[in-house]
Design a protein around this nucleic acid. Structure first.
Lengths: 199, 199
DNA sequence: TACTTTTGTAAGCAAATACTCACACCAATG
DNA sequence: CATTGGTGTGAGTATTTGCTTACAAAAGTA
């Protein structure tokens, strides 16, 4: 096998890692299989990552950078709160479908190994989303479109159930998810909660 | 070790199984540890269960019988739809807290092993709940308390996010969940969606 | 009592796992 | 050119895993 820089190899390893999760499930996720998939020796993998857990942590960082950052941009844009919340939800659903259950499977890995570091990282990703939702709702209340008597935390919690449920459906239905207009429909329900006139 | 009937041993094994999940996490869930916990030899465990997976399946059956059946009784009672939906939700949250993340951890096990049988059983438990929720909502629409223009499936989906999110909080926060009035508060939000006057 | 059945055990198996190591190669640098 | 340092490899390690098996002993039954 031709030599490559650590940077390139790390990228390949992370990609193969997610590929295996998607196609064969977590149980096939051994360093043996990983090396086979890439066509690299097992020893080489440990040249570019100190441990298997390090690979997972690197993927978490990617999720943080790619996904959470894109949500942050939406949440902080100058559009109306309704628009922002809707976009946030749709972006989340799209991401989950495009990255077929990866977050949930990593979640599964985290609870399987009862790993504190992994759990902390997951909690961070989870809470980051919740905070962005809360922010948008607060904005909507501040400008008077949404009901000020609402408990924002509760709605954020209810909101978080949506992506999580999408994840579960994805896993249990083997990656299938029929989501035409799904996020719009959920948004309609959320607005029934948020809108002022609905006492 | 004194001899005991298979019935008693199976019960002990299932209990120890859940104990280990709760106290040490899934990674410690080996037949070796299981036998140590009970004080029985490892060979004995395989005398009472054909395989490790059989233990998990037996626990699923227990959940089905104890938990889902109790939900079914609530859903089919003669109380008002509001009351039934509220009780259903509260019962679910209570069960999840009392059985600290067990369903989710079994879920983790199912997706970890990519096991079709386990996934099917989980899907069944998941869908059973969804159906009961749908039934109650349909009843509420039929008697005129709730808005007939609602897409029942969507609300059932939104509802399912609540217990699932509770599970996640339980796992990520190490079994802590501050749920005073939690289910009532969620119920308040759901009613804002369901009630007729909220166009 | 004599038998059969059920339950218990210790030892051990084959397979898989994450990870290491001694060594080979290659490219860049002095 | 010689040196150095990063990259690749195959064989090997120790450990863990789910599960089996040969046999002992207790419990049930005649």
């Amino acid at each position: 096998m031709k030599k490559q820089s650590t940077e390139i190899r790390q990228k390949q390893i992370k990609e193969a890692f997610l590929d295996i999760i998607h196609s064969d499930g977590l149980k096939s996720l051994s360093t043996r299989n990983l090396s086979k998939k890439i066509g690299l020796s097992e020893g080489s993998i440990f040249r570019h990552f100190a441990s298997k857990q390090d690979i997972i942590l690197a993927i978490f960082s990617d999720v943080d950078r790619d996904f959470i950052d894109s949500l942050r941009i939406i949440a902080n844009s100058s559009e109306s709160p309704e628009k922002r919340l809707s976009k946030l939800l749709c972006r989340t659903v799209t991401y989950l479908v495009d990255n077929k259950g990866v977050t949930m499977l990593l979640f599964s890995e985290a609870s399987h190994n009862n790993d504190t570091e992994l759990k902390t990282r997951l909690l961070h990703i989870f809470n980051s989303q919740k905070k962005l939702v809360s922010k948008i709702i607060h904005d909507g209340i501040a400008i008077g479109t949404w009901d000020e008597s609402l408990h924002v935390d509760n709605i954020a919690m209810l909101y978080m159930g949506i992506p999580v449920t999408v994840n579960i459906e994805l896993i249990l239905n083997g990656g299938q998810f029929h989501s035409q207009n799904f996020c719009q429909q959920m948004m309609t329900l959320l607005e029934r909660i948020l809108n002022k006139e609905n006492a």
